[in-house]
């Protein structure tokens, strides 16, 4: 009987060591992937290390309030993507997703032009983690937060 218990403990220790090694390996892999596995560049990253003009990259951030403008041709739009540290002007020609608006998240796929403008050939809308009913939209930010707080 004591032999059986010992074997059981030995297996437990072995499995725990294997698990610790696995989790360590997983964390290491995730850490080394931290820049490669990101889906887009933030404006600050793009400003600090601009990609070559011909490389297809993604730029993600907030559409700055008041920056969205439509060119006279009616289909080309220009706006500024910011993250609080850097601002990058973006140009896009085409149909925007429904959730694309100012003060909201966006991921632009395209290339950096020589003059520093980001020329997007596709726009994806990125929304935040807040889920608020339409009727609550008119509330101020503080009121909404309070209402959300109640659900804690």
């Amino acid at each position: 009987m004591s032999g059986a218990i010992k074997a059981k403990h030995q297996r437990l220790v072995l499995v725990l060591i294997a698990l610790a090694a696995l989790i360590g390996a997983g964390l290491l892999a995730a850490w080394s992937l931290r820049s490669q596995a990101s889906f887009f560049y933030l404006p600050a990253e793009m400003a600090a290390k601009p990609p070559e003009p011909d490389r297809a990259v993604r730029l993600g951030g907030m559409v700055e309030a008041g920056s969205l403008k439509t060119d006279p041709d009616g289909v080309t739009i220009r706006f500024v993507v910011g993250d609080g540290k850097a601002r990058i002007p973006v140009m896009f020609k085409g149909i925007v997703p429904d959730l694309f608006k100012e003060n909201s998240g966006v991921v632009a796929e395209g290339k950096r032009a020589a003059d520093g403008t980001f020329v997007a050939d596709n726009l994806l809308a990125k929304h935040d983690e807040k889920y608020v009913p339409r009727e609550m939209k008119e509330m101020t930010e503080a009121q909404a937060r309070q209402t959300v707080e109640v659900t804690k």
């Binding site: 995730a30 596995a37 990101s38 935040d128």
Partner: peptide, 13 residues
């Protein structure tokens, strides 16, 4: 994944 890396999916609500 949504906390470590920039992603299109939003962080947990």
């Amino acid at each position: 994944s949504v906390l470590w890396w920039n992603s299109l999916h939003q962080p947990p609500s």
